[in-house]
Design a protein around this nucleic acid. Sequence first.
DNA 1: ATCAACAGTTCCGAATTTCTGAACTACGGA
DNA 2: TCCGTAGTTCAGAAATTCGGAACTGTTGAT
Lengths: 114, 114
Amino acid sequence: MRPLFHPALEDIKPEAILYALSDPERVAIYAKLAGAAGGGTCSALADLGDRIIPKSSLSNHFKVLRESGLIRSERQGVEMRNQTRCAELDERFPGLVSAILMAYGQLAKEPKTG
Amino acid sequence: MRPLFHPALEDIKPEAILYALSDPERVAIYAKLAGAAGGGTCSALADLGDRIIPKSSLSNHFKVLRESGLIRSERQGVEMRNQTRCAELDERFPGLVSAILMAYGQLAKEPKTG
DNA sequence: ATCAACAGTTCCGAATTTCTGAACTACGGA
DNA sequence: TCCGTAGTTCAGAAATTCGGAACTGTTGAT
């Protein structure tokens, strides 16, 4: 297995962040991760309520999040601990990630249309 | 020609905004538009300095920006006036667009790597 | 040491999306 | 009406995404 790539803080690009968070499934994963204390594993985040994300898709979502700089993943025994890099990121792009999460959060507050 | 579609404010989705602004060419277009006073035309924004965006690609970029809710386009004689919907948008998703533009602006301030 | 179970990754083909040259539509002026 | 300009639509090649199946790496049991 290839070692996992994490960009250095200064190499993180806004387009990668926006792209990663332009997928609601990835946002759902990221938001759960941001809420979870100890760092979530892949399989713990696969269930979206209305659908269970296939393993390979899930792995790809984590890769996109990781390589965009949004999360850090490290192997811990048989599983993978994933945690957000939000403190770092907020230093580099102040307010960006939180504004995005707020925007998605906004949707949840509104009455469903459709 | 089909009439141009503009989503109502309440139908604007964060994923569409993020997706639209995850492309540096579109961000460059949007940023110029945000800076321009009277609303820019397509052809006035085609030149990116290092590359001239082909007409059809440009038209598609404007379509993505328009249908995500970022801009409003209206025909004025032979050309198209495009203007940002930033005031409206900021009401719906406070701070989102400005945080994104700030993040991209951040890059410009840093010494180029590569 | 060998085996089984499990977490996650990689591979690869199908489906979808993006890109852009060429053809087309719409408007205004002569 | 015919021409020029601004932008849209079409179509097919190229690139990307999705997800099942096979694989890798780790732990624990025998």
